[in-house]
């Protein structure tokens, strides 16, 4: 039962964050780049204010998988870096915390771009 409740929370919070994005798309005609930029910034600001950690405790992957979680990692990395290394950590922290994700995205994009060709859209 517990595990069901966890997954329900993950589903609802994750879905809700995406739905907010969709409302923005409909209301403001934002392109996907802008949506991503905005959500990364929101995630980072919430983390800086200490509001994002409770959300992760509550919704787990529901708050990590949306791109706001990427913003949170960047901010968290910078704050942690500051504690460990001082000013140098502010420079290094953000990328260190997200290095795995970015590198994976770049590597997989590189590999699959070499393998696949672009196809015309159907719809």
């Amino acid at each position: 039962m517990d595990i069901f409740l966890t997954y329900l929370k993950v589903f609802c919070v994750g879905g809700f964050i995406c739905m907010l994005g969709q409302i923005l798309i409909i209301k403001t005609k934002m392109t996907s780049s802008r949506i991503l930029v905005l959500f990364v910034c929101i995630g980072a600001v919430l983390e800086a204010l200490g509001l994002y950690e409770p959300l992760i405790d509550f919704a787990k992957a529901g708050a990590i998988v949306p791109i706001t979680g990427f913003g949170r990692s960047l901010a968290k990395g910078a704050i942690q870096g500051l504690k460990e290394m001082g000013l140098l950590g502010v420079f290094a922290g953000g990328l260190t915390a997200t290095a795995a994700g970015i590198t994976c995205a770049v590597i997989s994009a590189f590999i699959f771009a070499l393998i696949f060709n672009s196809k015309t859209k159907k719809y």
Binding site: I25, K29, T31, S32, S118, K119, T120, K121
Partner: peptide, 19 residues
């Protein structure tokens, strides 16, 4: 379609919705 799309809009594989 595919040449105009990449020049004026987005890459074909990008999962965006057309308005």
């Amino acid at each position: 379609f595919s040449t105009a799309e990449r020049q004026y809009r987005f890459p074909l594989e990008l999962g965006n919705q057309r308005p």
